[in-house]
Design a protein around this nucleic acid. Structure first.
Length: 576
RNA sequence: GGGGAUGUGGUGCAGUUGGUUAGCAUGCCGGUCUGUCACACCGGUGGUCGCGAGUUCGAGCCUCGUCGUCCCCGCCA
């Protein structure tokens, strides 16, 4: 075969007059009857090849079609003045073909590879063709570069990349596990790791001191645009370290990545407590690209004159201001009212229409004689009820309103740390507390005694990195004593017996000199998507799954043979 | 598990109150064309309207069911 002497990004003025060989795909053909132009594409670029009717090779160009793989030997020449294409990287030159070799033919592709259109279904079925599109090529190349620099950074900070197993032990708590049946031990199962959590902590106990891994994690839960069943984390753990050490490492990395690849200085990344985030933004992952903070009216003097909105003891009365109310139709406000009601909240809105107050609760404010200081067109949405529900509801209103008002500057990047999450949350289904982060998280030890009657008030030494309202990663200081770990298991209703069966090896490890340690895990797919301004993880993963967890290209998951099941000692109860 | 959107030539879309021959663009095939760059122009091919039932004289359109894709809630330590 004619092997390439140049990649397509290398075809430029410096090669004028030289003979080159290029390899690539036919991106487009323009046959003008006499002269024929081809665009040849590879991963690096796009170059125009000319076929002159005077040359013998001209006879063969008619056999070509889109997506054929070809080798072209020819002379690089400057294009005629009028025929230069400034939109093309190589638009100053072209290759005059002397020889052509067809390396592979192609059927007419079922989707366009040179256009940004096509529905997801067809594109996922022919993912290998979709991946030829320059946008997806760009995303995956970008991802590679970020991974590369990430490794470089972690290495420079003396972190060791150490692999951990994929065939692991199923553990309670957290997401549903993907299970893998064991053939050698019929009736038993491995689980794919939801994260390498336990292993990286064991590596700390082994003395490796600083560990990281860019690693696949698996969670068998329903999908979203920002959630895939298998996804990649930058996982890290440090010994003799606390929260500030971890934040420093991660800050350094994120700032470096944004500076190098996006050209943005993230500046000082602020730290906000979980409770502040909830009170001000109604979210544990606030989008700080716009203001619109929640206001707490609970302690205002007029709060007890608010008729049905009056907060009873322990409840909250809060509001949010919307500057341009004209985009909020009655229908939108009704839908807010309905969702508030379904959360057991009382809801009302009031706006300034040409100097007069109107809206569902205008009368209440008027009779209470409150000066709301609303400018013309400004609206206030007010909500009363259980404090945590009020925050959550107004937080969702805040996001929805920002979307409607187009308040988000898509080119800006706002990162922050949210810290001191609650250690536990109540699981209504199982009627017990469970760890909000995970059960290996170090609690505020003083909270354990202080709030022994109300575990929901205990805080954890945990921290989330949030970028543009996306949870980018989370971490915590870990428990490193058996005694405390056992205490936590007890609090979340894991019996001593169960703890021993599930985590016995882990608890035992703590008896052999476990150093204080802390760590973090960053959602790598999300980070790439955020940096590229994409909302779907599918665009940064080469072979993603659909929202129902299938792969349309390979038709996965699929049935397996009866023999395979027998070998595993498994019988399917699903009817064919 | 629930809600919403969607499914029409290979691809992207239109299709009125249910009405006779399902349009448009692009691709593909053939033709003309020696400087195009999403080449242009002329001609042509291509559709079980996701699938199944029902209502009706008549269904792409209405009803019920079902399947796929996308978005959201639940869920995701």
């Amino acid at each position: 075969m004619l092997k390439r002497t140049q990649r397509l990004n290398e075809i430029d003025d410096s090669l004028i007059g030289k003979t080159v060989i290029i390899n690539g795909w036919v991106d487009r053909m323009r046959n003008l009857g006499g002269i024929v132009f081809l665009w040849i594409r590879d991963r690096y670029g796009l170059v125009q090849v000319v076929f002159d009717p005077q040359k013998p090779v001209y006879e063969y160009v008619k056999n070509l079609s889109n997506e054929y793989v070809v080798a072209v030997k020819g002379i690089v020449r400057e294009r005629p003045k009028e025929a230069k294409n400034p939109n093309l990287e190589s638009g100053n030159v072209e290759i005059l073909a002397e020889e052509l070799e067809i390396l592979a033919e192609s059927k007419t592709p079922p989707i366009y590879t040179n256009r940004e259109e096509g529905n997801e279904e067809a594109r996922l079925k022919y993912r290998y063709l979709d991946l030829r599109r320059s946008a997806l090529q760009h995303n995956l190349i970008f991802r590679h570069r970020v991974a590369h620099l990430t490794r470089e950074y972690m290495n420079s900070k003396d972190f060791l990349e150490i692999e951990t197993p994929y065939l692991t032990k199923s553990t309670p708590e957290g997401a549903r596990d993907f299970l893998v049946p064991s053939r050698l031990k019929k009736g038993s199962f491995y689980a794919l790791p939801q994260s390498p959590q336990i292993f990286k902590q064991l590596l700390m106990i082994s003395g490796f001191d600083r560990y990281y891994q860019i690693v696949r994690c698996f969670r068998d839960e329903d999908l979203r645009a920002d959630r895939q069943p298998e996804f990649t984390q930058l996982d890290l753990e440090m010994s003799f370290a606390d929260q500030s050490d971890v934040l420093e490492i991660v800050n350094g990395l994120v700032k470096k990545l944004y500076e190098k690849f996006i050209g943005i200085d993230l500046g000082e990344i602020p730290i906000m407590s979980y409770s502040e985030a909830m009170e001000k933004f109604g979210s544990d992952k606030p989008d700080l690209r716009f203001e619109m903070e929640l206001q707490d009216l609970t302690n205002e003097t007029f709060a007890h004159e608010m008729k049905f909105l009056t907060p009873s003891k322990g409840e909250a009365l809060k509001s949010i201001r919307i500057l341009r109310s004209e985009t909020f139709s009655r229908k939108v406000l009704d839908s807010y009212a309905n969702s508030a009601k379904s959360e057991g909240l009382r809801f009302g809105w009031v706006k300034n229409s040409n100097g007069d107050l109107s809206g569902s609760i205008a009368k209440i404010f008027k009779s209470a004689g409150v000066n709301l200081d609303l400018k013309n067109g400004e609206m206030m949405i007010t909500c009363a009820g259980k404090r945590s529900s009020v925050n959550k509801f107004l937080g969702s209103v805040r996001l929805d309103a920002a979307k409607r008002l187009n308040l988000v500057d898509e080119s800006s990047v706002k990162a922050l740390w949210v810290v001191d999450f609650p250690m536990f949350e109540w699981n209504e289904e199982e009627k017990r507390y469970q760890a909000q982060h995970h059960p290996f998280t170090m609690p505020y030890v003083e909270d354990l005694d202080k709030y022994s009657s109300d575990p929901s008030k205990m805080r954890a030494h945990s921290y989330d990195l949030v970028i543009n309202g996306w949870e980018m990663g989370s971490g915590s200081v870990r428990i490193h004593t058996k005694k405390l770990q056992e205490k936590i298991f007890k609090l979340i209703g894991i019996s001593e017996k169960e703890a021993k069966a599930r985590f016995g090896f882990f608890l035992e490890a703590f008896e052999y000199g476990a150093p204080p340690h802390a760590g973090f895990a960053m959602g790598f797919d999300r980070l790439i998507a955020t940096m590229l301004g994409l909302s779907s993880l599918r665009d940064v993963i080469a072979f993603p799954k659909t929202t129902s967890g299938t792969d349309l290209m390979s038709d996965t998951p699929s049935k397996v043979s009866e023999t395979q099941l027998e070998e595993l000692g498994i019988k399917s109860e699903v009817d064919e």
